[in-house]
Design a binder for these strands. Structure first.
Length: 607
RNA sequence: GGGGACGUAGUUCAGUUGGUCAGAAUGCUGCCCUGUCACGGCAGAGGUCGCGGGUUCGAGCCCCGUCGUCCCCGCCA
């Protein structure tokens, strides 16, 4: 028996055709001698009618049909009468009159119905993932995922990129996230590691002369999960020879445009660029959400006299920001908000300034006006509407004699930046900046460039890689000798792509010269021997004619999350894991037999 | 590792101050129904209140512990 049509394709123009539909029983409506079955498959839902007078055998079968049974309906397409057309269904103008119904498979009563509007809790959904995936929403999510992957492949292929697979079982490299390890049976006590990314292999492919590589690659990181983080996730990974940063940007902008067209979304490219420094100063974070107005630096408006009068620490920055369209707050609401802000500022190194009260005082009224004006200017840049009395202005000041932590300017910027996001989230129903409006403004892309090359490790009191060890520093900083004189000022040719405050991907131009690589390792206080131990095979490869190269990797799951409007990666991954990295359906991880452990030369220290 | 929310029927949830508090809806089972499409009507079954301990005359409710799910911080070159 062959399916002639799917459950989503029959239309009025098919009336009179003999058809065979195969699918799951979505719902059954029993009117006695007339039974309706809604048949569901990936493509849609079609109503099948069993009439006791026309076909008593089919009708008798339908009496036994239950939700989620798999059935075959054989019959004729019939136009529905005018008064029983269902405009809510794509197939609502017709129905299939069955002259034969076959039950191909019955089904236990499911713990929840894929036809249900209200969805079960996630624990149940994950345990019975096959039922959850029958839901049209999940089918749509995975369809979009498939089509985006396809669009990316087509685009990159047309740009000359080869899709090349790299090993899942490879060597553990000591930097970065915790590895998932795979014990070797043949080599007692030795382990493979699952790749955190194909980083080294893709660089070696450049050394191999593959010129342009990409891969939709699974990556594994044994770190704690978040709504947007899974232990295994998928990256659109690419690398090319002889690139400028701009070359990489153009490729990414190209395939993102193609990817977003899958759901009919238009995006504007090229994307704006911003240095890391500017991102920190204006947004207090390295992944700015441009859907909200930036912070405003009010430091220069607070003269030493004013600071003394208002009990504000000299020198340190004063930062303000606006949350748009919050509306008038009552006195109690304002008080509660202020105390909430104080609470989130925590250790009282920073304080919130009451602008309303400032304005009532003759001494400070001028200052209050100036602050409002500056915040208004920023808001105008943001949406050309300017400051209204119903926007919420927040000004954060450093307290005098504060904890050493707050002396760190970076800490202040980050803290205020966090507050900016927290308050925006709190009032999101009011300003609706996070809602889709159906135009290109829904997607605020941004390239963040010039990341610092080194990062101070407070625990070991050493400089460490901010990116990864093969990221190239700025040529200028090398020539100026800052590697030795001022490591903090060295910029990396590293860049992130950010969308609506979410880090979508990260990449860099790599080091291709051995002398530079050596210089980097020395700056980090790493001996040649140690470097060799950690990255030996790659350092070898570098010596055999390495072309300048660079690339990037973007989180495919996160892109799909944005495109589907999902709030969690689990909604766009067929078989995801829980926050404790458990697969509730397969019940993994699990214990294994003594025999397996013996073969792998492993003895658990804890059962 | 830390903080928070939640856990009651298959499912989604309500359950007041510790004292008819074992409830609703939906699903399920049976019967009835020829135009429904979240069909409708009648009847019925369905519970270790996550688990363990404690307080109390008495615990779904209070306390301690534990397990699970979710969110956040740390972590994620």
């Amino acid at each position: 028996m062959t399916r002639t049509h799917t459950c989503g394709e029959l239309r009025a123009s098919d009336a009179g055709k003999s058809v065979v539909l195969l699918g799951w029983v979505n719902r059954r409506r029993d009117h006695g001698s007339l039974i309706f079955l809604d048949l569901r498959d990936r493509y849609g839902i079609t109503q099948v009618v069993m009439d006791n007078e026309l076909s008593p055998v089919a009708h008798a079968k339908a009496e036994h049909a239950r939700p989620e049974y798999v059935v075959a309906a054989i019959g004729k397409v019939r136009l529905r009468g005018k008064d029983v057309i269902n405009p809510k269904m794509a197939t609502g103008e017709i129905e299939v009159v069955a002259n034969e119904l076959r039950i191909l498979n019955d089904a236990k009563v499911p713990p929840f119905s894929p036809a249900e509007e209200a969805i079960a809790n996630e624990e149940v959904r994950l345990k019975y993932r096959y039922l959850d995936l029958r839901r049209p929403e999940m089918q749509r999510n995975l369809e979009i995922r498939h089509k985006v992957a396809l669009a990316v492949r087509e685009y990159l292929s047309a740009q000359g990129f080869f899709e090349i697979e790299t090993p899942f079982m490879t060597r553990s490299t000591p930097e970065g996230a915790r590895d998932y390890l795979v014990p070797s049976r043949v080599h007692p006590g030795e382990f493979y590691a699952l790749p955190q990314s194909p980083q080294i292999f893709k660089q070696i492919l450049m050394i191999s002369g593959m010129d342009r590589y990409f891969q939709i690659a699974r990556c594994f990181r044994d770190e704690d999960l978040r709504a947007d983080r899974q232990p295994e996730f998928t990256q659109i990974d690419l690398e090319m020879t002889f690139p400028q940063q701009e070359t990489v940007f153009a490729v990414v902008e190209g395939f993102l445009k193609a990817a977003f067209e899958v759901t009919g979304e238009q995006i504007r490219a090229p994307f704006p660029r911003m240095t890391y420094d500017e991102a920190i100063r204006r947004y207090g974070i390295d992944k700015p959400d441009l859907r909200l107005p930036a912070m405003v630096d009010l430091t220069s408006d607070f003269t030493p006299e004013l600071r003394t009068a208002l009990k504000i620490e000299q020198e340190l920055p004063v930062l303000g920001f606006t949350v748009p369209r919050v509306g008038e707050l009552s006195g109690t609401a304002r008080k509660a908000l202020t105390s909430d802000i104080r609470a989130s500022l925590g250790d009282s190194a920073l304080d919130v300034l009451d602008i309303a009260r400032l304005r009532t005082n003759d001494t400070f009224a001028g200052l209050a006006d100036k602050i409002s004006e500056k915040l208004s200017d920023e808001l105008k840049v943001f949406d050309e509407r300017g400051l209204a009395s119903r926007d919420l202005n927040v000004v954060i000041t450093p307290k005098p004699g504060v904890a050493a932590q707050a002396k760190d300017r970076l800490w202040i910027y980050k803290k205020v930046g966090q507050l900016r996001l927290d308050l925006a989230k709190r009032f999101q129903d009011k300003h609706s900046a996070f809602e889709k409006k159906g135009n290109a403004d829904d997607y605020k892309f941004l390239w963040v460039t010039d990341f610092p090359f080194f990062e101070w490790d407070g625990q070991t009191h050493t400089w460490t890689f901010a990116h990864h060890p093969f990221t190239s520093p700025h040529e200028d900083d090398l020539i100026a000798g800052r590697m030795e004189s001022d490591p903090e000022a060295v910029r990396a040719l590293a860049y992130d792509i950010v969308l609506n405050g979410m880090e979508l991907g990260s990449g860099s131009i790599r080091i291709h010269r051995q002398d530079v690589q050596g210089q980097i390792f020395r700056a980090l206080g790493m001996s040649d021997e140690e470097a060799r131990l950690r990255f030996g095979f790659f350092l070898d490869a570098l010596q055999y004619g390495t072309p300048p190269h660079g690339g990037i990797a973007l989180g495919l799951d996160r892109i799909i999350m944005i495109l589907t409007g999902a709030t969690s990666l689990r909604e766009v991954i067929a078989f995801p894991k829980t926050a404790k990295a458990i697969d509730l359906m397969a019940d993994a991880p699990s214990q294994v037999s003594e025999q397996q452990l013996r073969e792998l030369h492993i003895r658990p220290t804890k059962a």
